[in-house]
C-alpha cells in the first residue's frame, strides 16, 4: 500500500501539473493560430491522443526503470511493487483521462464562444483504456530492456501490437490499418478487447520483472 500511495500521489500530481501547463500552451497556440487561419480541429484532442499517450508510456518506463530499484533498495519485494504498479497504472489512466476530459470541457466552451469548429472526441472509457495499455506497455518493454539489455528489443513488436488495440476507435489516431473493420463489427465490445490488452501488458510485466535483478548503475 505504501508503494501504491507513493506512486499515485507523486505521479498523478505530476501528471496534473504537466497536463495543465500543456493545456494552457495549446490554448495559447490555438488563439495565435486563429489570427492567421480558421480553427477547424481540436488542439487538445491532438495533444490528448498523440502526445499524452507517449507521456503515459514514459511514466510506465519511469516506474519500472527508476522506482522499482529504489523500492527494492528500501526493502520492498518485486511482488509488492508490481501489485502496486498494476493498481497505479489503472488509477493513473483514470486520472489522466479525467484530466483530458476536463480539458475538453473547457476547450469546448472556448470553441463555442469563439465560433470555432470542433471534432468529436473519444469517450472517458476509451481514454482510460488507451492510457492504461500505454502505461502497461511502457512498464513491460522497460522491464524487458532492464532484464535482458538489448534483447528487450524483441518485445517491441508485442508492445506495438498491444498499444495499437485501444487506439483504434479513438478519434485522432490511425492505428491498425489492416483490420479497419474489426472495431466497427465489435462496436462498444471493442473496449473488452482493450481491457484484455491491458491485462496482457500487466501479466507480461509481472512475468518479466518478477525475477529481474537490480543492476549496478553508473
Amino acid at each position: 500500500m505504501k508503494v501504491f500511495r507513493h506512486l499515485t500521489t507523486t505521479l498523478v500530481a505530476y501528471g496534473a501539473i504537466v497536463a495543465a501547463c500543456v493545456f494552457l500552451a495549446v490554448l495559447a497556440a490555438t488563439f495565435t493560430l486563429s489570427l492567421f487561419a480558421d480553427i477547424v480541429f481540436s488542439g487538445w484532442m491532438m495533444v490528448s491522443v498523440q502526445i499524452a499517450r507517449w507521456f503515459v508510456l514514459w511514466v510506465g518506463v519511469y516506474v519500472i526503470h527508476n522506482v522499482l530499484p529504489i523500492a527494492i533498495a528500501h526493502g520492498r519485494t518485486r511482488r509488492e511493487f508490481l501489485a502496486a504498479a498494476t493498481g497505479f497504472s489503472a488509477v493513473f489512466a483514470v486520472a489522466m483521462s479525467v484530466l483530458a476530459w476536463l480539458g475538453f470541457l473547457v476547450e469546448d466552451s472556448v470553441y463555442d464562444v469563439m465560433g470555432w469548429r470542433n471534432h468529436p472526441h473519444g469517450s472517458l472509457l476509451a481514454y482510460t483504456l488507451m492510457f492504461a495499455v500505454w502505461c502497461g506497455v511502457g512498464m513491460f518493454v522497460t522491464a524487458a530492456f532492464d532484464r535482458w539489455g538489448y534483447g528487450g528489443a524483441l518485445t517491441l513488436p508485442v508492445g506495438l501490437a498491444l498499444v495499437a488495440v485501444p487506439g483504434i476507435t479513438m478519434p485522432g489516431t490511425d492505428d491498425l490499418p489492416v483490420f479497419r473493420d474489426a472495431p466497427e463489427l465489435l462496436g462498444e465490445g471493442w473496449h473488452v478487447v482493450s481491457v484484455f490488452a491491458w491485462m496482457i501488458t500487466m501479466a507480461l510485466t509481472w512475468a518479466v520483472a518478477r525475477a529481474m535483478p537490480v543492476r549496478t548503475r553508473t
Binding site: 530499484p69 529504489i70 527494492i72 533498495a73 528500501h74 526493502g75 537490480v214
Partner: peptide
C-alpha cells in the same frame, strides 16, 4: 539494507 551507491536508493 544494501547500499552499493546512491543510485539504488
Amino acid at each position: 539494507c544494501l547500499v552499493r551507491h546512491m543510485s539504488d536508493a
